[in-house]
Structures are given as C-alpha cells and as structure tokens.
Design a protein around this nucleic acid. Structure first.
Length: 701
RNA sequence: AGCGGGAUGGGAUAGUCAGGAGAUUCCGUGGGGCUCAUAACCCUGAGACCGGUGGUUCAAAUCCACCUCCCGCUACCA
C-alpha cells in the first residue's frame, strides 16, 4: 500500500504541492519494478471548516465547492503522470460508511468518551465558531488574535474561551460561549504502544523524530467531533460531526476498497499477472505493508493520531511514513494569497512535459529536505542533465545504431557494461529499500552519464571502418545501456520511458516489465530515434521569469488597492514568508564616519519613503524594545514593528507623524509581521517627522 | 522555551543511521580533445581545513558534549 496525503479541496494546486504526489507515484512505480504488488491510492479531503466557510462566502454549497476542486485535482494528477489506482474523496459512500464503522468500533472498544466543553457561538447565526473563526484580543499580550492562537502578538496557543472580546470572523457578530457535548478519543491509552511504534517506524527521519516530543511527553485525549454541519456524522448522533482528521485518513482505506471493487484492480497489480482482484482487507488487516507519503506539515497526524486509530480498530500499523520537505519559489515560500506561485496549469500551459518537473523535484534534494523551484534552475537542470546527459546519450547511441546496423548490432554484451548495469540495478533496489526517492530518480541519469563516457572513449565512429567488430560491440553495449536507462527511468519519467521503449522497437509497456529487463536483449531492428527532450533556451527563461514577476506585482497591486481587505484569509498558512530582515541597527555611541561610497539619484529612488501617521501602538510582550505600530500611510494602514519601546511612551505615540520606508521587505520580528520600517535617529530613536502638514502617504524626497 | 530539520569549494546538492582510499554530482570557471550527438559530449586544472570549540578513536564531514546561526513544529486549521 502506498498512499499520498489528501489534498484539501479548497484551492488550486501549485507545483510545490505536487512534490508529495510525484514522490509517492515514483516510489509506487519503483516498487512495482521490484515485482511487488502495489496499490497506490489517495483522494480529496472534502470536509472541515475552511471549505464550509469559503463555500458560504461564495454562496454555494460546501459540497459543490469541494467537488469542483476535487474534479480539478482528479484531472491534474494524470497530467503529471501521477497514476493513482484509485482517487476518491472523503464524501463517497465508501468513506462515509467506513468512517462510521471505524468510529463505531472505537466506541465499542471503549476508546471514546463524552465530555462537555466550551465553544464559541454566534448567537445571531445560531452557529458554532470553531477555533480560527473567532478573533478577539489576546489575554496575555493584548494583541489582536485568532481564536486558537495569538498569531499577531505573543504567538501563544489559546484554549477555547480564553480570548477576550471574541467576534465571529464570518459575520463580525460578537461571539459568546456555550457548553457543548463532544466526543474524545482516548489517545492517552496508546502512549505505550506509540512509544514502541515510533521506534520501528521506517521512512524519513523527520517522521520518526518529530512526534517524539508528544509521544514521550504526555498525550492528551483527542476531541474528534465539531459543531459544524459539514462532515460525517458521529454514528448514532446525527447532530455531532466528526472532525475532518478522523475521516480524512480513513479515505486511504476507502480508496483502496474502491480500487479493489473496481474492474481494473485485476490487471494492474504489477509484474505478477495473476488476475486476482486486489484484496483490500488483506492489505489493511493482514500482511499488507503500509507506506504513507505526506508533506512534513502533517507528520503528527500520521505518526500519532492515525496509528492509534488503526491500532484501536485492529488494523495494520504503518510501516513507513515519508514526509517531504516544502518547495520554495526562488527561495521564499509559495504564497497562494499573493499569487506568488507557479500553478500546475501554468506549467502545463507552457507546454512542458510532466517528466521534466518530475525529475527536477525528485532528484533536486533529499525527499525530506526543503528545496527550491526557479525557472533558472529548472532550465539549468533540464538542459544539462536531461538534454545533455540522458537525451544526448540515448539519441547518439540509437541514431548511430540505426544508421549503421538498422538496429542492435550482432555482438555479445561486454562484461564491463553488464556489470555496470547490474550495479545500477542493485543500487536501484537499495534506494527503494532505503526509501531514497531521490536516488531512484537519479539512477537513469547516472547510468546515461556512464554511457556518454563509454561511447566517447570508445569512439565507435572511428572504429566502424578500422575495426568493425569492435564497433559493433560498443554499439551493442550502448543500446543495452539505453534500454537499462529506459527501465530504470520509468518510475521517475514515465512518459520519457514509454517513448524510448517504442523507439527501441520494444512491444508492450515498459511499466509492465521488471527491473531485470534492463539486461534483456534489445530488439534487433528499430527506426531512427527522435530527440527525447528539448533544450530550454535562455530567452525563454527570461520570459518565464518576467511573466511570473508581472503576476506577483499585479497581485500585490490589487492587494494594495483593496482597502476592504480586512477579512482574514482562512488558509493563510502559506503566507508566512519570513524573510529575515535586519531589525533597526542600533547606532554606536559616537558618530559613525560618513559612508565613502556615493550613490546615484536612481539608487536613492529605490527607497519608497512616505509620511505616515501612527494610529495605534502597542508593546510586544516578551520583547524589551519592540513595539507594534499601525501606521496610516494614506492608501492603507500598515503594521510595522519598531524597536522603540524603551525610548518612548508607547501610549503617546498615536497621532505622531513619522517617516517610513514603505517598500521595505516584510519581516517577522517576535512572530509579528513588520511591513515597513520607521525611521528614527540614534540611540534615542528620535523619530523622523515632518514640520508642515504633509498628509499621510506623501512621498519623501 | 522545548522539540525536529539544516549549516559541506562562488551557487546548488550528496555522503552522516552501519567512522577509514584523492569528499559526490550539477552550474560557473582555466586548459585540452572529439565531431556519432540537441554549440550537445569527453578529458584535465583551480577552488571546501565539511558552522564553531572541545572530546572519543590508530583514524571523525560521520560518534559524544557544549555553542552560534537559519528553517519548521508545538494538538479542538487543513
């Protein structure tokens, strides 16, 4: 069993999201190459508050809203050759039934109890307000905060009921608290089991180590119901809805079941072509091996909650969890809200093959490491490794073979080359056993690199006339290497492998042959090859960069003009692009020497200096000198953090006019975003201001 | 604060779990070669005391301790 974390049906997919799915797909394909019977499943996560709220905002039903995204995902994955055996969603009958069955079992086994807790409530709408859908004032630092966390101030986690002056994020109505009955899962009973489980869990290090803090500490019982009308009901209690993190992982099982019940489960179980349908119960409850491929943000769910649930219902435990790192864009996080992203559609519309990005993202860094996407690096890697090394070796070999021999020359495979291919096969197997997705991805390019050295050093183009037998031998070896590259490359670059398989004159599908086929004799004849990959020229890269840049700026401009932009984005988990910017430098006591480097007027113009008026000022808890300011700069009000707390009476700051750097990089100081920089002179932090009546927003020159 | 992940030639990135040959690969860079091949390919040079300090060992990028700096996680967001 290989599963991929469920994408949340709440927005478009960008290329960063794909890393997990491409990783899972590559791994599943590699397992099949080793002859294993594999089911590879996933599905869309349809429930939860963000979907309910966003649907409400759009004026459509949550079902319609989620289904729309689900259908998009379902179309997108195959276009990147992510070939799930089944891709379902959490609202299917299969999942609803299975979820209720799971929960019923847990209940019967005594793993669930009732407890009354306080929840925020919107009395006008008659609706509960889970966690984030409440905002108010942090009782610790006084900053504006979300219901579950003081996100702008001290960063503390808030328990329900703690926040002061709570209001609904959705309606703006003041919220009150009500006591409601909820269901709790006795996670604490699994403490000992999980402690042992985590030691034998395979996969990436982060998945095994990160949950240790919880497991080796004290596990709290887990509230598994919500006051929401969008989700799966608790069995027997219609008004109680299960928390999405209960039904989401169960979709792995449901999706497998759907696969088993579908017609195509019999014919695609890999090399062993016994036409038996996939047995989902055997896979989940008996001898199946379970591998979860996820993003590193949901490790706890897969290494704590989920294994406990599985244990509670008597299913197999996961054998491995592979938690991928994030993909950044030019060194900074993708930001969907700011349109700082390369969307999957963008990529495909540019006409790039899935193979290129698959190779790029799989082989660029270890699976659990964060990595970076940029068009420059993408083009660089495609051009040197895929065009220059792999494509070139394959093309020159096959072209030479076709021209001279009309196919594979008659000669025995040389011992050296056979050994080299055998080694590549062994290394491939080791990579799979080590869950090293990166090494699986690099295998074909490494072997092609050897091929290039080999053909270059042997110079068959010279040998054709001088030593025809030797020439035939060399080309025979090269064609074999091409075939091996094709077989080894099939998991990472399925499209490339299929094309190459055909070029080699092979029949059937490269995906159905086992790894050892790399050593089987290639067909005697084949046609002239075509080039597998196309070079990405520099001006194309420039163009791609410009397009991306223009879009980011456009989105930023829209955000600036959007003065009503008070509604906090519910899925803004991705917007925290923390560029570490220097805080205001504290000047030395004496006078600093005047900088000797002169700058031009143009360089000065790079600074966007504006007049602003402080609207609100508030010290930041835990910091000696930082103050959170809200500064009116005409077009908008900015939140800026300044290191002036010790030096001014914070309460007297509102009303002061100041000069700020408006195009300062955003920075995060003490967990608070600073969007600009207030100018002040010297140790005393003497604020710069204007002496006339320049209005907020006026440019300073 | 605690925990997790990182720090390796100019840039990127492997190796660390199972310590030992000249520390991997890609880009860039100096020199040379080839012309079968998509100005692709091959050979060769320069460039890293593997974040810091101390320790274990015949031997440390790798193990141990402490420290510095980045990124992330910390449960009723998904």
């Amino acid at each position: 069993m290989v599963t991929c974390g469920l994408p949340y049906a709440n927005g478009d997919l960008h290329v960063g999201h794909l890393r997990t799915y491409i990783g899972g797909d590559t791994f599943a394909r590699a397992l099949r190459k080793l002859g294993q019977s594999v089911a590879f499943v996933s599905g869309s996560d349809m429930h939860g508050t963000p979907i309910a709220v966003n649907a409400w905002r759009e004026g459509v039903s949550p079902e319609e809203f989620a289904l729309r995204h689900h259908e998009r995902y379902q179309e997108t994955f195959p276009r990147f050759d992510v070939a799930f055996d089944n891709y379902g969603h959490t609202r299917t009958e299969t999942n609803v039934e299975l979820t209720q069955e799971f929960v019923r079992t847990l209940d019967e086994e005594g793993y669930v109890y009732d407890e009354a807790i306080e929840v925020a409530w919107d009395p006008e709408e008659g609706q509960a307000l889970p966690d984030r859908y409440v905002e108010g004032t942090c009782p610790y630092c006084g900053a504006h905060a979300r219901g579950d966390e003081c996100d702008e101030g001290c960063g503390r986690h808030l328990e329900p009921g703690e926040i002061e002056a709570p209001t609904s994020v959705i309606t703006g109505n003041p919220a009150e608290y009500r006591t409601r009955n909820h269901k709790f899962f006795r996670l604490s009973e699994f403490q000992e089991y999980l402690g042992e489980f985590i030691d034998r869990l395979e996969g990436t290090d982060n998945a095994r180590n990160q949950p240790r803090e919880w497991i080796e500490g004290e596990l709290k019982d887990w509230c598994i119901t919500r006051d929401l009308d969008w989700g799966i009901s608790y069995p027997g209690e219609e008004e109680l809805i299960l928390y999405v993190w209960v039904d989401a992982p169960i979709e792995y099982v449901a999706s497998t079941k759907e696969y088993a019940e579908s017609a195509d489960s019999a014919d695609s179980t890999g090399a062993d072509a016994d036409a038996e349908p996939f047995d989902w119960e055997r896979a989940w409850q008996a001898e199946g091996e379970l591998v979860h491929v996820i993003g590193r943000d949901i490790i706890q769910h897969h290494a704590v909650f989920w294994p406990a649930m599985l244990r509670g219902v008597g299913y197999n435990e996961p054998r491995a969890v592979l938690a991928s790192g994030f993909v950044n864009l030019d060194g900074r996080a993708f930001s969907t809200s700011r349109n700082r992203a390369v969307w999957t559609d963008d990529y495909l519309e540019e006409g790039f093959d899935a193979d290129l990005y698959r190779y790029y993202v799989i082989s660029g860094a270890g699976f659990q490491q964060d990595t970076d996407f940029s068009w420059d690096r993408f083009a660089e890697r495609v051009n040197s490794e895929l065009v220059g090394t792999l494509g070139n070796f394959v093309y020159r070999s096959l072209l030479f073979a076709h021209r001279t021999y009309e196919g594979t020359p008659e000669a025995e495979l040389s011992a050296d080359v056979r050994e080299r291919i055998e080694r590549a096969i062994e290394e491939f197997e080791e990579s799979v056993n080590d869950y090293s997705v990166r090494a699986i991805g690099r295998a074909p390019v490494e072997l092609a690199g050897f091929g290039n050295e080999y053909i270059q050093q042997a110079e068959p183009w010279k040998l054709v006339d001088e030593e025809p037998e030797r020439a035939a031998q060399v080309i025979r070896d090269c064609v074999q290497l091409v075939k091996a590259v094709c077989v080894l490359g099939a998991p990472v670059m399925p499209g490339m492998a299929e094309t190459l398989w055909t070029q080699l004159g092979e029949s059937g599908s490269v995906h159905d042959v086992p790894l050892d086929a790399a050593l089987d004799a290639p067909p005697e004849t084949f046609d002239a090859p075509t080039e597998l990959f196309e070079r990405i020229e520099d001006d194309r890269v420039t163009e791609l960069n410009e397009q991306l840049q223009a879009r980011i700026e456009e989105a930023a401009a829209e955000e600036e003009t959007d003065t009503t932009g008070a509604g906090s984005d519910p899925e803004s988990t991705e917007s925290g692009d923390g560029e570490p910017a220097e805080a205001e430098a504290v000047a030395d006591p004496g006078l600093e020497p005047i900088a000797s480097d002169r700058i031009g007027f143009e360089e000065f113009q790079d600074l966007d200096l504006r007049v602003g008026r402080v609207e609100r000022a508030q010290g930041i808890e835990g910091s000696d000198e930082l103050v959170r300011l809200e500064v009116d700069i005409g077009v908008e009000t900015r939140q800026i953090v300044a290191g002036i707390k010790q030096l001014h009476d914070v309460d007297s700051l509102p009303g002061s006019k100041v000069v700020i750097v408006a195009n300062m990089e955003r920075a995060e100081l003490f967990g608070v975003e600073s969007n600009g920089m207030v100018l002040a002179a010297g140790e005393e932090a003497d604020l710069l201001t204007t002496h006339g009546n320049a209005l907020p927003g006026t440019t300073v020159r």
